[in-house]
Computed example of a mutant assay.
Amino acid sequence: MSPTLPLELQLHILELALPPLIRRNLDERVRLCKAFSLVHRDWTKTAQRELHEHITVTCWQLDSFILAARDRILAAHGGGWSVKRLDARLRGTGGAIILLEEGQGVEWSAIEEMWVNMDEGDFAELGADGLRRLHIYDVWRRGLLGFLHALPTRLTYLGLHNVSLRDWSAVRLPALEVLILDLVADPLPWATLIPSHVKLRVLACRCNFPRIDTDTLANMPQLHHFIAVFDTTYRAADLWPALFDAPDPHSPPVRLPQRLQTFTCLATKYDPLPDDQSGLTSLKIACEELGTVLAVRLDLTNHEVRVFDLEEWAHSVGV
């Protein structure tokens, strides 16, 4: 008889076999967990826990969304599970406001992470007090005005996708550690986006985003990981002239935060860079002095830039 691995090791292998816990993998995780639960009864409990820890609800009507989410959460609670993640995909809710609050045996406060798609309506009130990670996707690239008084101040992770930042000056997120700016509009100065009291550790940007100067990142002393994704090197020169524009002998060298561990820059090669890339040379020197891992690729295709997943990148650096 062949030896059998200890159950704890089997379950650990199962957990490692699941794809990363990011939005685009949620359906695949569900499929695999359902398959695992049918293999052996010893695996069922672990698979069910994974199945019930997150739910995805897609609805056209506000009432339908609330009822569907509530039914799913109650079903999980009935089995002794706690829902930690909610993927809310709203379609045409007509300006409705969703209020998630305690009551009727539904523990909204247990939800730690939410992905929210906004279409014609708004998702404005977030009463899930335990929320720490929030991803907002806006089809119409509107502002955050409806969210300003509703964003939990204890958020540590915020991903903004296709969102206008024109109302950001009223946002107060003192605990924020991870910020993703993905195709945002109306960018504000970095000092407004990330005040000095915010201890940001991870910053991911895909253009458009505020212009970066030689000392922009150095003013984020707690930053550990940074990535910038540009659709073209022309856009890179516009948003980060210190690195990609024609060399200026009078410009100061690039300065980086002392704790920076990784620096990644991606772009398509649409326009030729200057022969003397003194900015990139300055960046390489700064990374070598700090021991920062530098990855620069300026030869991606348009498709590669478009489908690059910033949430997956953030997961890869441990957040």
Score class of each variant (00 low, 15 high):
S2I: 00
L7M: 10
L7G: 12
L9E: 00
I22S: 06
R23K: 14
R24Y: 01
E28K: 13
R29P: 08
A35C: 07
S37L: 00
R41T: 14
K45M: 12
T46Y: 11
T46E: 15
R49K: 04
E53V: 02
V57D: 04
L74T: 11
A76H: 02
V83H: 03
A88I: 01
G92N: 05
G95W: 06
I97E: 06
E101A: 10
V106A: 02
V106W: 00
E107V: 08
M114A: 11
N117K: 07
N117W: 07
E120R: 15
G121P: 05
A124N: 15
A124Y: 05
G127D: 03
A128Y: 04
D129P: 05
G130S: 09
Y137S: 08
G146F: 06
P152T: 00
R154E: 09
R154Q: 15
G159K: 00
H161Y: 11
L165D: 00
L165Q: 03
P174I: 05
P195S: 08
P195R: 10
A204G: 14
C205A: 12
I212P: 08
L217W: 08
T233R: 09
Y234K: 15
L243E: 07
A246C: 10
S251L: 07
P252T: 00
V254C: 04
V254A: 04
R259F: 12
K269V: 07
D271A: 12
D271W: 09
D275R: 10
Q277D: 15
T281I: 10
L283W: 06
E289N: 09
V293N: 07
H303C: 11
R306C: 11
V307T: 01
L310K: 02
L310D: 05
E312V: 01
V317K: 01
